[in-house]
Each structure stands twice: as C-alpha cells, then as structure tokens.
Amino acid sequence: MIHPIPEGTRDILPDEMLELRRIEQALRETFLGAGYGEVATPALEYHAVLERGGGTRSAFRIFDETGGMLALRSDITVPIARLVQSRLNAIEPPHRLCYFGNSYRSIRPQRGQMREFMQAGIELVGGGGQEPATTEVIRVLSSALDAIGLTRAVIGLGDADLYRALMVEIGLAEPERDAILAALLKHDLVELRALVVAAGGLQEGHRRALIEIPTMRGGPEVIACAIAVGGEPVRRASDRLARTCAMLDDLGIADRVQLDLGLLRDLDYYTGVILEVYDPALGHILGGGGQYDALLGRYGPEMPATGFSLYVERLHIAQAEEERISRAEAAGPD
C-alpha cells in the first residue's frame, strides 16, 4: 500500500540520513568550537508572537484546543530573538547561540520547493561593535563551509542600506526610490535602468552609479570603483562595508568573500550587512544572513544582532555535486 505525504515534505531513509547527520555534526562541532551554544525552540509558536518579528509570514496556522492561534515557524532567527529576550534577559550579552531544526514555508506546486526544510545557523546577539561581529560571523561561516568540504563556496557580502542610502544621498524622491528598489528586488535591471533614466534632475555620475552599482561585485576594489563613478554619496553609503572589508582583510579571510553592491534581502528585519552563500556546483543560494538590529527590539530592549542560516538539504546537494565533479576531474578527459 502506498500512503501519501503532503507535497513539499519527505521521508528520509538511512543512507541519506547518515550523510545529513554527518553534515550536521561537522557544523555543530564548528559552531560549538567557536563558542556558540546550541539551543532549540518549538516548531510551533503563538502566531501573534511570531508576527511581531516580521520576516517571512508563517504559511501554516492552526487553532489549538482553547481557540488560540498557533503557527509553524518560517525561520529560526525570529524565535531566537524571542528566546534571547524572554530567557536570557538576566544574562549579560553577548549571546552566542547556534541551532539546528526544521522550518516551514509555503511552496508553489511542481517547483521542487520544500514546505519543511532543515536549517542550521548561528546568532551573535549584543556585544561589541558591528564590524567585529560581522567578521566573527563570517569567520565561523567560512570554517563551517570548510568543515563540510565546500571549500569552493563563496560568501557574498553586501549592505542592505547601501543602495537605499545612496538614493537618499542623491536626492531621489520617495516614490521613485520605492519603484527603483522594487525593480532591484525583482532583479529586473531593465526596469531599473528605465526608472533611473526617467528620474529627473540626476547628475550623469549619479545616474551611472545607480545603474552600475547593482551589478558591481568582486574584491575590495569594488568600493573604490563605485566611488569613482558616483563620488561622495557613494563613499558615504559604502563606508560601513569598507570598514568591514578592511577587517576581513586583516583576518585573512577576505579571499572567500565577494563584495556585492547589488545585494539586497527582502526581509524587513535586515538593517546592515547582508550575507549570501554560493557554491559553483549549485544554482541556488545555500544560505544567507546578516545584521538585523531591528529584530531584537521587537521583543525587548534594542540589541544589535548578526547571524546566518544554512539550508542543510542544499548543502548536501552541493556536497554531492562537488564530489561528482572532483571524481570526474580525477578521471580526466575520457
């Protein structure tokens, strides 16, 4: 007899489970070794409490026996913000926490998307300045990728405020800024160009900066390049990124990081640095994160926070692909 399970969910059999657990274990050792204590939060929370945090809306809501509305978490960052403010409020920050667990999102049919997927990540809450926090998180992320054999994986580093700040500096009106930002979020550079060209009263350098910055990516020189195009407003908007970059360089992990001035994330709680993780063997991002100072304040006193989260199943696919590629390379051309 075949009994179905919902679309976007799956059973895991021993061979796959063994490999997933190995990934999890390598990540756990890295996180714990860096001083991040593991926590767990319930998959099911009060809907109103999760909603406070913003982010991706919960796709699954149910009523409990008393009529209260519960929701399945859509990520673990929001629950951890709640946990920090409710359970650790008597403890002096910084808090270094890591987690492993399933999250739940809505899917579009027949797209290979998962309703239930496994996440692993860390959160660094409170404590020192922003740039040291960002570099620490990137350092842990880099070791985590190495620990699971994804040595070719690259960390994209951008700033959620950079493009917004630049548009303000340049003096674009709010409706124009919103339209341009919407085009950038859709990755629609054709529309972005049309909107920038249509916006009145722009200096040529500023116009070029708005059009070219979304595709500027590469080494630390990217920032100088962008400033060369757009001048002072770009320098001010990219200041924070430049400082982070210098610090990464001092730590010797800059070679794994790709600066990306077009990076933007659509979650409303990101306020500064944003991270994305790519591997050349996979067409999708492996995870992401960044700085979300606005989030903690929604559950208690304001506190800076930085973290990342990885999609464990995608790490597994990338690992399998990388192994296939190195086997093919070892075998040489037919």
Partner: peptide, 13 residues
C-alpha cells in the same frame, strides 16, 4: 560589472 577580486571559487567549464 565585476572588479577582479580574489575568490576561492574556481568555476569550471
């Protein structure tokens, strides 16, 4: 536009 920078990825093919 990409500005040559060191990245550890060596894409193939």
């Amino acid at each position: 536009m990409v500005v040559a920078g060191p990245t550890s990825a060596v894409p193939y093919g």
